[in-house]
């Protein structure tokens, strides 16, 4: 079954290669790997500047779907180059998240390597109709955080994806990736104080009784998309 993902072509390869973030980061095995750096910044403007206005409209949401394609390459071809690209983008963020959550630099480093290795091992469990790659990596990092920092078990809901699995509906995949990207942009656009409260909830600076759940973000769209994907899944399982 060909699950290769190429809805948006390859809009990034003609960008100047930059890897300033990882100049200290030698990866001799992948010296010939395309060393692109995606414009995930703090602001939507940074992303728009990177792509250029017209280009952004033409190559809609290349970043999210590219990560999905990378994860599928890991799953189907055990592609180490795709893994290295995902690692270079996400590992520093996972480590930052764990340190913000109270881990020492040393523990966060070890834990980050473990999280990224888990991504490799569990690539076959990734469902792009229910999560973008950033979402999925967050859940792996969160679970490691509970293990290591809180020394707790985390009860997980019963899994739906058992038995023969249907190929994901590509429209479901694309729309969820787009919605998640928009959520990121809406989060970036929130007033600082409001965003900081949400961040504190996820870094574990608020107790459960201090979390209000009201975010002022457009979460309803994503929820209805996932709801549809779940309905489809239940339908195919019948």
């Amino acid at each position: 079954m060909n699950r290769t993902f190429c809805i948006c072509g390859d809009p990034i390869s003609d960008q100047p290669r930059k890897s300033d973030m990882f100049t200290a980061f030698e990866t001799p095995t992948f010296a010939d790997a395309p060393a692109f750096r995606l414009p995930y910044g703090r602001t939507t403007k940074a992303r728009a500047d990177f792509y250029g206005g017209a280009k952004l409209a033409k190559a809609e949401h290349p970043d999210r779907t590219l990560w999905v394609a990378h994860l599928e390459a890991i799953r189907d071809k055990r592609d180490e180059k795709a893994f290295a690209d995902i690692f270079q983008h996400f590992a520093p963020r996972v480590k930052g998240f764990l340190m913000k959550s109270g881990a020492s630099a040393e523990l966060a480093e070890e834990c980050t390597q473990d999280v990224m290795a888990t991504l490799w091992r569990k690539a076959h469990l990734f469902d792009p109709t229910r999560a973008s790659v950033s979402t999925w990596i967050f859940t792996i990092a969160r679970n490691r955080k509970i293990d290591l920092l809180r020394k707790q078990r985390r009860p997980e809901p019963e899994d739906l994806t058992w038995g023969p699995e249907a190929a994901p509906d590509q429209t479901d995949v694309l729309t969820l990736q787009q919605d998640t990207k928009r959520l990121g942009e809406a989060l970036a656009a929130l007033p600082e104080k409001q965003r900081s409260l949400i961040e504190r909830a996820y870094f574990g600076d608020l107790t459960h009784s201090e979390i209000a759940g009201e975010t002022g973000l457009p979460l309803g769209t994503i929820k209805s998309r996932i709801r549809l994907a779940l309905d489809r899944l239940r339908h195919t399982m019948k």
């Binding site: 520093p92 480590k95 950033s134 990596i137 967050f138 998640t180 961040e199 996820y202």
Partner: peptide, 13 residues
């Protein structure tokens, strides 16, 4: 997904 975006935006280490 919101947690993923928080992680995406937070300071890198």
């Amino acid at each position: 997904a919101l947690g993923g975006e928080v992680m995406e935006m937070s300071e890198i280490a």
